[in-house]
Every structure is written in C-alpha cells, then in structure tokens.
Computed example of a mutant assay.
Amino acid sequence: MNILVTGAAGFIGAHCVLRLLRDGHSVCGLDNFNGYYDPQLKHDRVAWVKDQVGEFPLARVDLTDAPAIDALFQLHRPDVVIHLAAQAGVRYSLENPRAYVDSNLTGFLNILESCRRHPVKHLIYASSSSVYGANQRTPYSVQDNVDHPLSLYAASKKANELMAHSYSHLFGIPCTGLRFFTVYGPWGRPDMSPIQFARAIAEGRVLQLFNHGEHQRDFTYIDDIIESIARLIERPPQATPHWDREQPDPATSPAPWRIYNIGGQHPVALRTYVALLEKHLGQTARIELLPLQPGDVLNTCADASDLARATGFQPRVELDDGLGRFIDWFLDYYALPIAHTPLAAELKRRSL
C-alpha cells in the first residue's frame, strides 16, 4: 500500500516507517522536527531507518499548515494514513496549552480534511491511555466512559476520537483510534521516564519519584505497538450492524470507526520499574519521593482483548526483557559510563 506516516521522525513513527518499508509498502513521512526535545534525536532516528532500508520521502511540514498537508496528500495519494504526529507530554500541557490546541486539534482537523478531500481506505491515529483520566476501575476497557480527563493533553486526545467519529459518520472515512499505554524501547523520547530515569541512575543524580513512587504503569514495548499497527492496516473498521442506540457501546459505532487499547496488560509499580533499571544498569538509584503531580493518572492497566479479537495479537514482550533491550541501546547512543560490576561488564561486552 501507499502509506503516509505523520510524526515519522518520532519514537513510534520511526519504528513504524521501518516496519512498513520492510513489509514492502511505499511510505511517505511527515514531521516538523520541532524543538520540544533535541531535534538531533529525530534526525538520528531517520538516519537509523535509512541505514537499514534506504531512502524514503520525508516532508518537513507542520500539522497547522493546511495547504502543505493537502499538497502532500495530492502528491502522494495515500491509501492509508497513520497519524502519529502530536504535541506529546502531560506536564508540558500545563506550561504551554496552546501547543496542544495547535498540533492536536487544528493539526488533526487538517489531516481529517485532507482524508475527506483525498479519500483514504483507512485512517489510523494515536490516542492515549491518558483519556481514562479520573477512572479508578482497572483494567481500563474501551467500553468505559472517558469523560473526565485530568490534563489538556488527555482532553485533546479524547477530542481526536470524537473528531474522527464525526468525519467517519459524515464522510465514511474508516477510522481506528489507538490508546497507547506507556510506550518504551530504543529511540524513545527523552522526556519520558525510561531515558530520564536511566540517565539519573547512570550519572548518579537524584531520581525524583512522584506520588511517593506509588504509581503503577502498564508499560508497552515498542515492537508490540508496531506489530499491532501493522496488523490493523488492512483491517479497516466496518459499521457495526444493529448498533444499540439506547445502550451505545463507546468503542464501536454505526459508522466505520473503532477504538482499541494497546497495552502490556501487566501494570508495574514505579519502584519495581526502577529496580529493573538498576539491575540492567548495574547501579543503585538515589531516590527522592515527592507528592503527586497535577495531571498525573494514578494507575494504568489495559484491557486489550478487543485488539486480540480483531488482530489475533496482543502485546507479549515482558518488561524485564524490554528494558534490557532499551538499556543496550541507551548505553550505546548516549555513551554514558556505567558501574564496574559483572552485569555492567556483560552489558558493555554485548554492546561492542
């Protein structure tokens, strides 16, 4: 297929482009290479992909530039759009809320409009586990109500689901929303906990754990995310026959629209998570326990049974294994010194 991937220089986007090219698809990427974090990491991700599969078209375009987005659709005529570009980060949404309106609302509208003017077979877009907000019952199910977001970031992702539904209903665009649960792995974002925590431990700095380390997170390894996307590409949603309007299912619709959770389904306490990082780094963390931060969700846990029924796949990489792979990449990419322990020596040997 001819596939457009937005956010192609991002963490999930780069892995997605690599997989799609390896599967024989024709891929066009879009990214604005903004400065939310060091753009060099984005350039290095693109170079990593090209080293393995060769050149691919990558447009430097901002989501808010509607004419440029439409011109890209006109030029490449994608069969499928995988929309991963967004302004990410829960805490940053407290500092710069307008960035989320620009990228996640206006930007997503521009993608939807181009999908309407240049009809596509399937629009797959990134949502987030953060939409579950104040919900306390776990595991989170796509059948749950998600009307109580705790951050503007979460609200923007819930808005994306609603916007996609309206375009699916009005214009027949098959839309699949994916609620990602704490994605980690090689080439991850530096504002996320794996790199932040690993750097603090490796450099001997104090590691701050909010909510006194009592959070639980459902970590999902990047390969599981990409496998899920790859399987969903050729499974565009169909309208649900006999959809019950008196007892509506929030995850399905009389329009060709679906929502899926993608999560590891095994939530881990942050203290356990830190202990695994200590193990793979061969160093002990210096920990400072702090109160809960505004906008943070206490616990996350995915019910991915709908995804398994639709694709025959559910996330399978265990956290210990996934963190080991992540640390191998982390030590190589950042070239940080690590402790002289048997484990550290083995990690260094494996990286050479």
Rank of each mutant, 00 (worst) to 15 (best):
R116T: 08
P236M: 05
W329I: 06
P291N: 13
I225M: 08
G204P: 15
Y92R: 06
L30M: 05
L18S: 02
L170C: 07
E234H: 09
P237G: 11
H25S: 09
W243F: 14
D332Y: 09
K158E: 10
R309D: 14
T138V: 15
N110T: 05
W48D: 01
T272L: 07
V274Y: 07
N110Q: 07
V53E: 02
L105K: 03
F108N: 00
R271M: 06
Q238Y: 08
H118W: 14
L347G: 06
C301V: 07
G188P: 03
S141H: 10
A335P: 07
Q40A: 15
L152E: 03
A339T: 14
I124C: 04
H165I: 04
T138H: 11
H340S: 13
L109W: 02
I338H: 08
L343H: 10
A345Q: 13
R217E: 02
A345P: 00
D79R: 07
R316V: 10
A85C: 05
Y140L: 11
V81S: 02
V90C: 13
W329R: 07
Q196M: 12
D320S: 03
H148K: 13
A85M: 06
P254E: 15
C301H: 10
I287S: 01
A345D: 06
F330D: 02
Y273N: 07
T106E: 09
R91Q: 13
G188E: 12
N34M: 03
S130H: 11
D218H: 12
V5F: 04
R350G: 01
N211W: 05
R45N: 04
M163Y: 11
I327A: 07
S193V: 15
D218Y: 13
T6P: 00
D332W: 09
Y221E: 05
A200C: 03
R350P: 01
E113M: 08
G24Y: 05
L152K: 05
L4S: 00
L72N: 03
E161I: 07
H15R: 05
Y132F: 15
H280R: 04
L21H: 08
P119E: 12
R325W: 01
R325E: 04
D328K: 02
H242V: 09
V146T: 12
P57C: 09
E318F: 06
V146F: 06
N211R: 09
Y140V: 11
H212Y: 15
T176N: 04
P39V: 08
G312V: 01
S305T: 15
A14C: 07
I226P: 00
S253Q: 05
F313G: 04
I327K: 03
A251S: 11
Q52I: 02
P149N: 02
L270P: 03
G295S: 02
R325T: 00
D144P: 14
T6S: 06
R235G: 00
S128Q: 14
A126C: 05
P250C: 04
V142A: 12
P337R: 06
T311R: 03
Q143A: 13
L30N: 01
S168M: 08
P250M: 09
F326G: 08
